[in-house]
Amino acid sequence: MEFNPSCKDKKKTMKQSMLLCCKLYISESRNKAALDSIERAARSDPETVIVNKFEDGDYNRVRYTLVSYVAHDSTGCPIYSPLYQTVLAMAEAAYEAINLELHSGAHPRLGVVDDIVFHPLARASLDEAAWLAKALAADIGNRYQVPVYLYGAAHPTEKALDTIRRELGYFRPNFMGNQWAGWGVPEVLPERPDEGPAQVSRARGISMIGARQWVATYNVPIMSTDVSVTRKIAQMVSARGGGLPTVQTLGLVHGEDSTEIACMLLEPNQIGADRVQSRVEMLAAQEGLDVEKGYFTDFSPEMIIERYMKLISDTA
């Protein structure tokens, strides 16, 4: 389709203001050929931009942060986003290149394409993020025969991601006490998925797909190899353990001489990284442990928009 000048201007405005962000978590970071294949698929549409990539070798996990616009019909309903085909192409490449049965790492996971979450940016809404999550879930579930569980705004009752994960045994290591290896859940799932079959392919596993407002991810290294102590501290930091509201945590092995508390800040403008860091340091000191300064695993929404605008203008 050829755009006349007014259409070009309208599309440019759309790219600047109606934006969705996708965070795509894939269970692999050590196989360069697999990641190259996934990233080639991501470049299939120049209107989708990878604004960040976070790899962790110990966790054997990678997260891609992608951004593109969402278009609407004359009534204001969302009808198209380049993110849809891009994420679908990346998922297909991941399923072709990665076998979950051969995968192991220090971070929990239940699938090759483990988690896909959409966040609204700029003037986009949570409803638009949920629309895209549900559309993608139906395609992944049916096309690739992968069980998909919806969460957050994409779920009819806004079911929480951590609730679904607990039901499926996500948080229980299944190898050497602190690692996850192969497929560790029954092949006939205890909870019916929202899309796709109830029978699991052990090579592909399952996928979580959701939509929610911005969540910050912040990790705090603990200078100890005793993961049981790190998990105890993590629990005391989390809302679930009576710690900080809207904070979720995991205590994990990270390298040969340290552990780490991986945190999800569900309302980072209310309970931020400084509060988390201070509480971890206080609790670790009571155990006689040193703590390093934590780090965010992704940019802020403002920085993501800024990077997207720069990258999209560079390719225009």
Rank of each mutant, 00 (worst) to 15 (best):
F3L: 15
F3Y: 15
S6N: 09
K8V: 12
D9F: 11
K10N: 07
K12V: 01
E28N: 13
S29M: 08
N31I: 07
D36P: 01
D36L: 05
S37T: 11
I38N: 11
E39V: 13
R40D: 10
R43T: 10
T48F: 04
E55K: 15
D56S: 08
D58A: 14
V62P: 11
R63D: 11
L66A: 11
V67L: 07
V67A: 04
A71L: 03
Y80P: 13
Y80T: 13
Y84M: 12
A94S: 14
E101Q: 14
G105M: 00
H107C: 09
H107Y: 09
G111I: 00
R123E: 13
A124K: 04
A124H: 07
L126V: 15
D127E: 14
D127V: 13
K134C: 14
D139F: 03
G141Q: 00
R143L: 13
Y151V: 01
P156Q: 02
K159V: 08
L161I: 11
R166F: 03
R166D: 03
Y170K: 08
G177A: 12
N178G: 04
N178A: 05
A181N: 12
G184C: 02
V185Y: 02
L189T: 02
Q199M: 08
A203S: 15
I209P: 06
Y218T: 02
I222C: 06
M223Q: 15
S224R: 10
D226G: 09
D226F: 06
V237A: 05
V237K: 02
R240S: 10
G242N: 05
G243N: 09
Q248R: 15
Q248E: 13
L250R: 07
T259F: 04
M264E: 13
L265D: 02
N269D: 13
D274M: 03
V280E: 05
E292H: 07
P301D: 14
E302W: 06
M303V: 09
I304M: 13
R307V: 03
Y308Q: 05
T315M: 14
